[in-house]
């Protein structure tokens, strides 16, 4: 039960992350959730994943967020949301209640309790998942590289191979043009 404060804390952090006006604050609250969840995992005895959550979730992801925000610029966006807040809250509450109707009472099947080490489980039983992670990272990295690739840079690199690559989308096109393409 020692993890109760962490659990409460992470939910509160989540609330603030959603509410934060500035992007940087949202990213920091998110890191807070990560830290608290990592502590909670530690309390449950899942030490290895706690360390990983701490380093990847609170470390790497936060760094990436801060980096992206530095590139983009911290732009507070206000104004009405797409869904009225009250309606959104009601819908979410309904969904969570519906889900908990199926969940409670929680009856876990604890018949099996063969305990091996984390490393053995990962590298023997679930080694296929571990290998697929490599593919996931490869696909993700290719995706990021493809998305951030800029035509001008490439064109310069390739010494005019694509010299006439058009870049007409740098200046925002008028909105009427966008509307026209939709039906």
């Amino acid at each position: 039960m020692e993890f109760l404060p962490f659990l409460l804390g992470s939910v509160i952090c989540g609330f603030f992350a959603v509410r934060a006006a500035r992007l940087l604050h949202a990213a920091l609250w998110l890191a807070g959730i990560s830290v608290l969840i990592a502590l909670m995992m530690y309390q449950l005895g899942a030490w290895e994943i706690a360390i990983i959550e701490l380093s990847v979730g609170a470390g790497l992801v936060t760094v990436l967020f801060v980096f992206a925000i530095a590139v983009i610029g911290d732009e507070p966006i206000s104004g009405r949301s797409l869904t009225p807040k009250l309606l959104a809250a009601a819908l979410v509450a309904a969904a969570v209640l519906l889900l908990s109707f199926f969940l409670f009472p929680v009856e876990a099947n604890s018949a099996v309790s063969v305990q091996s080490s984390f490393a053995a489980t990962l590298w023997q039983d679930r080694v296929l998942d571990a290998l697929l992670q490599v593919m996931l990272i490869f696909a993700g990295v290719l995706g990021v590289m493809g998305l951030l690739d800029e035509p001008k840079v490439r064109a310069a690199e390739e010494s005019g191979l694509h010299a006439e690559t058009p870049a007409p989308f740098d200046q925002p096109a008028p909105d009427s043009h966008l509307e026209e393409e939709r039906v």
């Binding site: 696909a139 290719l142 995706g143 998305l147």
Partner: peptide, 9 residues
Amino acid sequence: ELMTVSSFL
């Protein structure tokens, strides 16, 4: 998930 991640780009 692998299918999804490779289809984003």
